[in-house]
């Protein structure tokens, strides 16, 4: 058998339309369904809401163009400023999420018997629904038959009306919100601590670093990715706060615990002012955009490296 009779390895394939075009058709096909539903239910509605904020609409009768009047009314609305201030309180208070989360993670980063179960139990509040969290905390702080006052009465303390108080309601709701938020941040830090390079820590210990010094100069810089995510999710959580307000206080008493997200819902569906509601949503969206831009920038910068 001569060598020439060997056929060359056949590397050419039947020349079909698919074979010629698959390199651009495939990604298009794969992306299409996700892009279509995301466009219909997320992208387009954003622009529709912004447009709607320039109209007066009760949800039924024809819309009426009113220009910026929803916004001028909004900026003169006391409830709006109350909501803004409460959202700022939420933001500040939620920054305690990463702080307490780190403290808990440091407490739990040990290898003793039952520690895995302890970690899971500490994470519990994040897994259960905010509706349940809201019901539980609302009942805990209820002035008439709440668990807190029941407990305090054993120590001779007068009943407190925290959730019914104009000056305290927001803080009770925020406290309820912090409970799952701390759990979330804790798990982020625990993962960061577990994945940390042990040699670096030992080397620092050799050099005499310990306690706060070690935490501040060696541990925290290594935990930066965890801190970044913890802060981002806490900011988004604070600005998205709706469930707990809706379940615990309905924004009351006298709108004292309302937030932008709840005020928007209330104006739209309870007062049937769709245009006004859309204007509130637009303001909330613009505030959130600052954080979205910040997150995208950090994410894409990391990508470029």
């Amino acid at each position: 058998m001569s060598i020439t009779s060997l056929k060359p390895l056949n590397l050419t394939f039947p020349d079909t339309w698919w074979r010629r075009n698959q390199m651009w058709v495939t990604p298009l096909l794969l992306l299409l369904p996700a892009a279509v539903v995301f466009t219909i239910f997320v992208i387009i509605p954003i622009f529709q809401s912004i447009t709607l904020s320039f109209y007066d609409w009760d949800g039924i009768n024809p819309k009426k163009w009113v220009g910026f009047s929803n916004y001028t009314e909004l900026f003169g609305d006391e409830v709006f400023w109350k909501a803004i201030f409460n959202n700022i309180w939420w933001l500040f208070a939620f920054m305690l999420g990463p702080v307490f989360g780190l403290a808990l993670a440091l407490f739990l980063n040990q290898n003793v018997r039952g520690i895995r179960l302890a970690k899971s139990l500490f994470f519990f509040p994040f897994v259960i629904s905010q509706v349940v969290v809201g019901l539980v905390f609302g009942w805990f702080f209820n002035s008439q038959f709440g668990l807190l006052n029941e407990l305090l009465s054993h120590f001779g303390v007068e009943p407190l009306a925290l959730i019914e108080g104009e000056n305290t309601a927001t803080f009770v709701v925020i406290l309820a919100g912090l409970w799952p938020q701390v759990s979330y941040c804790m798990i982020l830090y625990l993962t960061g601590l577990t994945a940390m390079n042990g040699e670096v820590i030992e080397a620092a210990r050799m050099d005499g670093a310990k306690g706060w010094n070690l935490l501040w100069h060696i541990i925290l810089p290594q935990l930066r990715p965890a801190t970044f995510i913890a802060v981002v999710v806490s900011v988004v959580g604070a600005l998205r706060s709706f469930d707990l307000v809706s379940i615990m206080t309905l924004g009351g008493p006298y709108n004292s615990s309302t937030v932008l997200a709840y005020m928007m819902y209330e104006q739209t569906f309870l007062n049937f002012r769709y245009g006004y509601g859309a204007a509130i949503a637009t303001v909330l969206f613009i505030i959130m955009d600052v954080y979205i831009a910040f997150f995208l920038y950090s994410m894409l910068k990391r990508e470029a490296r």
Binding site: I46, L52, L296
Partner: peptide, 28 residues
């Protein structure tokens, strides 16, 4: 797959995931 607009599309998915629900509420 490398194609024009890949990163832009990706950014839209990321950004959309953070928007407040209220901006979608009435239209949806």
């Amino acid at each position: 797959y490398h194609f024009r607009g890949n990163l832009v599309l990706f950014s839209i998915f990321i950004a959309g995931n953070f928007v407040p629900f209220q901006i979608l509420m009435i239209p949806v």
